[in-house]
Each structure stands twice: as C-alpha cells, then as structure tokens.
Design a protein around this nucleic acid. Structure first.
Lengths: 200, 200
DNA sequence: ATTAAAAAATAGACACTGCTCAATTTTTCC
DNA sequence: GGAAAAATTGAGCAGTGTCTATTTTTTAAT
C-alpha cells in the first residue's frame, strides 16, 4: 500500500504516541514493543519507524508525556491545597501518581537513551518543570526568595523523595518492613527544611 | 551429546554465575542475554536453563552477588575509617561502588522479578545486610542503642542516599546542574541526624 | 561384563524482538 | 493523463527467552 491519508503525519504521530502510552501503561517497559504499537494503530512496523526515527525516540516521547501528566497532577494537587501543608501535598502527589501509574512512571527511569542520542531541547524543558515546582514550594515553605541555596536544596529533596518512591514501588521498602514510605519521605523533607530554617 | 563431566553441577553453576557477572558488568542489564553467557562458558543455552530454572533466576543470583560485593566494600571502607566520620565514609562508599560498577549496580534495580516468583530466603538475607550496616552506624552516630526508631530512620536514610545515587548515575542530577551529588546526599543525612539528635 | 535406568547436555524449533529496505501503491502536481 | 514524489508495506536479518525431543554419558543392577 501507499499513502492512505487516513491520517496526516502529525495525526499519525500522536496516534502512535497515545497508543504507545496505553501499551506502556498496560505491559510496562520490559514488554513494550514497536510491533505491538504498530498493530494497535493499524499500521505496519515500517510506518512506525518512518514516523519515529527509532524505538528509543518513541519511548522518550512517551516518557516526556508521562512527565507532563505527572507535573500537571502535582500542580493541581497544590492548587487544591491552598494554604494547607503544601509540602505534604507535594510529596503525597509525587507518590500518588507513581503508584497509580507504576508502569508509566517506572518507564521514565528504566529507559536509558543510548550513547550518542541526546534529548530534544523541548523535552528537556518539559522535564525541568518538576525542579521548578520544588524550588517554588521550598522557597515558600522557608519564606525566602529562590536563590542558589534553594535551588540546590530543591534538587536534593527531589532526590530524597525519589529514593523513597523508587524503593517503595520496587518493593524493597516493603520487604524491609516499611509500610508508610510516604510518611518517611515527608519526615526527611521536614528534617531538612527545619535545619534550613534555623541556619538561614 | 550428554554429560561431559568437565564440570560438576556446582562448578557449572558458579562458572555461569561468574561469567554472567562479567557480562552484566560489560554490557549492562539491557544487553544481557542467556545465549551470550552460555557461549562464554562453552555450553549450550539448554544447559544454562538446566542449571538455572529461568533467566530471572540467573540475573537474581548475579545481583545478589553484586549486593554482597557492595556491602563488603562498604564494610571495608568503614573498617579503614576507624573513628573518623563514619557516616561520610558510608555515604561515599555507597556512591563509589555504584560509580565504579554502574552496570552491575544498576542491574540490581533494573531487574524486577516477575509476579509469582519469590526471592529465595538466603538471597533475601544477603540483601538485608545493607540495612543492618546502616542501623549500626546510625546507632553509633546518635550514640543510642538500636531500637524501632533507629531501624525506621536507617531505612529512610538509605532511601535518601539511594535517591541521590540513582539520579546521579542516570544523569538526571548532572542535567539539573548538580555536580556534587555525594555531598548533597551527605547534607541530607546530616540534617536528619541533627534533628534526631535534638529530638531524642 | 551386560544391560537397563537415570541424568546431563544438546540441537532445533517456536514465537517473539528491533530494525532495514526494495517493492508497491497512492497521492500530488504539472 | 502521466510523471514524480511520498507513504506504506512486509519480507528478511540477526537476535531474544523458553521449551521439547533427542542423544550421549554415567551409574546401578544384574
């Protein structure tokens, strides 16, 4: 067959992205495959490789989409929180999204782009938003404007929460007997905020 | 062909484990394959599946071995440290091993055992040693005997350091502009130890 | 020593994977 | 209408995990 013009280039791209996203959510990174995506959208493998340069590019696009949904989820949680304990809300939202979409969330970190391949600038920017949210909330919690120290602390606290989340989803924390990983992550964040508040 | 008795069952097992370990270190979880291991030890795939029930079992055995080497590495670092800042040494050793053996270290967390498969008890015990080391050192740092609160804190601080380490190796922290992830992890651990010391 | 049973190792097959590319079909444009 | 361009296909390659039938070797029993 040749050009079917059932869908334009862009339509096809977002169709495959959407279906790829669904597949990733269902089967996870490990069982994700280009052929399955192609079959689901009703095109052949060749067409998929025509639209996406490589499978890594498709996975990366899916992951960026997940990242966007994740940060949006956290922003909305913050919006609903108002003046309440926004740090707790943020940490909880971090976990909630991951636990509600384990396959999608884990795929972000399971996927390592091959050496030589670089992330497009727009995708990189999309992913930087998480850091920005953290910076804003920590600045607010400490009642101090964002400066270098806040930026460094924000990154580090994201890593702290991430560590708890990643081990919780992998089952390691449960196996060690920890049943409230979110509470523990929040404890650690509070510890550091307390120290930062005193030392200011 | 049949039994060659070049190697006994146990010899064959540890041969495949050793060669599998080497392969994992060279190519990483993503490019690891049963056939390559079989070829390297000079046996066929079938023999490998005769010795190891499934590929997941081999990977799990390799990862447990890595875990053992890792905890040994940290213990030795602590032994050399003597009375010096043992917490700093421990955090540094956590990172050092991971950075020196990225493929082996990441494989531990890349591998998710399929639903239904459970980790053998001896392997689980081997992996629990990391928690024990952390508990002992935190108990020592706070000059308090190990109790429930120390156990909970130790797990959480391991998760904290882990988060920094995993994001550092994945390149995320570097991309966010953080160039001293070990120092940041140590900062967070110190924050929590300080709070724990005051609140005791 | 001969033979039968058990164990070990293998080759080969199955259905799958990422990826490529010549061939084919459709659309577009003159 | 016809030529050029673009889109789509699916066969093909080299690889994967896993399983089964088969062959070979070892062991045990006569």
């Amino acid at each position: 067959m040749g050009r079917r013009s059932d869908h334009s280039r862009e339509e096809l791209r977002s169709l495959m992205l959407e279906e790829g996203r669904r597949l990733m959510g269902e089967v996870g990174f490990h069982r994700f495959s280009a052929r399955k995506v192609a079959e689901r959208v009703g095109y052949s493998v060749g067409t998929l490789y025509n639209v996406f340069e490589t499978l890594d590019a498709l996975v990366m696009a899916i992951n960026t989409r997940t990242f966007t949904a994740w940060t949006a989820f956290m922003s909305e949680a913050l919006d609903r929180a108002g003046r309440r304990d926004r740090i707790a809300v943020l940490v909880q939202a971090y976990f909630d999204f991951a636990q509600a979409n384990p396959n999608l969330w884990m795929a972000i970190f399971d996927h390592r782009l091959p050496p030589g391949m670089v992330m497009p600038e727009d995708e990189r920017a999309e992913r930087a938003k998480l850091g920005a949210i953290a910076e804003a909330e920590i600045s607010r919690a400490l009642d101090r404007p964002i400066d270098d120290r806040i930026v460094v602390l924000a990154r580090s606290l994201v890593a702290t929460v991430h560590g708890h989340c990643v081990l919780a989803l992998g089952g390691s924390l449960a196996e060690m007997g920890e049943r409230r990983p979110v509470a523990r992550a929040l404890d650690r964040v509070r510890d550091s905020l307390r120290v930062a508040a005193r030392g200011a």
